[in-house]
Amino acid sequence: MTALPQTTAKKLGLVIDLDTCVGCQACVTACKGWNDQGAGLSDQQPYGADPSGTFLNRVHSFEVQPPEGEAQIVNFPRSCLHCEDAPCVTVCPTGASYKRAEDGIVLVNEDACIGCGLCAWACPYGARELDQAAGVMKKCTLCVDRIYNENLPEEDREPACVRGCPTGARHFGDFADPDSKVSKLTAAREGYALMPDLGTKPVNRYLPPRKKDLRHEASVLAPLLDIQASGFAGWLDRVLGKI
């Protein structure tokens, strides 16, 4: 049913630390690797002239010149934010798109999907990609087949992108619980939502890059160079200064 639940018992989602992310694409690969099993995420001409494929997670890199301080490169992983008011769900004509009342995960029932693509249009974040081979919509499932999977060792019961991140830039947890790791991280580091004005109420939060030190503008020799001129040089300095 494409009506959104009023509230969800849990709000599972990710915290992505833009300060820590090094843009290595390990999360992209881990995601593709895990989710390529079973129904799969198809590629078109992966080794051909014009390769293309379905991914649930993409890492962009931006060059940012902050209002103060040095320019920096920010690596920016982009995936489904599991919005509370998910526009992709309500537009679905078949009920294939839905948001789970128990944990807030937004999923696609591929058996009911007609591949009309309207949900991908409705998503401001580009979280959904139509699988060109299967003809149905694919999106991040928060690795719903890992996080509750008791056949996996406990440390593996988190999304593949989180598990695979070598720098610990991705965190998984329940935002409805104020004591969870993700809630505390968001509070401590002023985590924010993307394009909040669109009213989608994303669950995922991004942690901004930490403030960097300012470059020392003056030379380390400055104390030695700050010589007060005296005598003829001092007179010249004063005269030239007045012209």
Partner: peptide
Amino acid sequence: TATGLQGEI
């Protein structure tokens, strides 16, 4: 607003 980052991007 898309990235939440400040400054010129």
